[in-house]
Amino acid sequence: MTTEHPSELQEWVTDRVETWVETYKKSMLTPVILRIVAQGQPVTVAEIATQIATLTGWQVTERGLYRTIKRLQDSDLLTSQDTTAPRTGAKRKDISLTQLGDEFLSRVLAELLILDQ
């Protein structure tokens, strides 16, 4: 059985894509988080983290995710409500979009360029 090794060109492209994603991930995280929240609100931070990993394959640190969510709350795009988990009684925050967050997400999505071939 032979295994194919990626060509030099394939390796170069892979490296360029990974570098591009790492460079722009922080700015792309805002619409990703807002979209996740919009589709399932209210959601927990753990649900957001799981969806980011599932949908994008990105690994975002817990600290980075909390900082981004805090920034979005400070910008009045997200709101949170303290709740109690049903089975455990643990305290958690349920995250939802604000009206401004919904408008912001709609405008960002409208600006995305989608090319049909």
Rank of each mutant, 00 (worst) to 15 (best):
D76C: 04
Q73K: 07
R71H: 10
Q41P: 10
D82K: 11
A49T: 05
L78F: 04
G101Q: 03
H5Q: 14
Y24H: 15
D15W: 04
D76L: 08
G57W: 08
G64V: 04
T2G: 12
R63Y: 07
T79G: 13
L105G: 03
L65Q: 04
T61S: 15
L9W: 06
R92Y: 12
L34K: 02
D102Q: 10
H5W: 09
Q39T: 07
P86W: 04
R87G: 07
Q99D: 12
L29G: 00
D82H: 06
V21S: 03
E11Y: 03
L72I: 01
P31K: 00
I95L: 13
S27W: 08
R67E: 11
L100G: 05
L115A: 11
A53E: 14
I52D: 02
Q51G: 04
E4W: 09
T68I: 08
L65M: 06
Y24F: 13
R71G: 09
V45T: 08
A110K: 11
G101Y: 05
L105N: 06
A110H: 07
E62Y: 14
T54Q: 15
T98D: 06
K70S: 15
K25C: 00
K70R: 15
T44K: 07
E18Q: 07
D116S: 15
T83G: 10
I114Q: 01
S106E: 13
A49L: 11
Q117H: 06
Q10K: 12
I33S: 00
E111V: 00
E22I: 01
L34Q: 01
L77P: 02
E4M: 10
V43Y: 02
V17A: 13
T83A: 15
T50F: 11
R67L: 14
T2V: 11
L77K: 01
Q73P: 05
L113N: 12
L109N: 13
E47R: 12
T44A: 04
L55W: 13
T83R: 14
Q10R: 13
V32F: 12
Y24D: 06
Q41E: 15
L55F: 03
P6E: 14
W20K: 03
I36R: 01
L115S: 08
K93V: 06
H5L: 15
F104G: 03
E103M: 07
S27E: 13
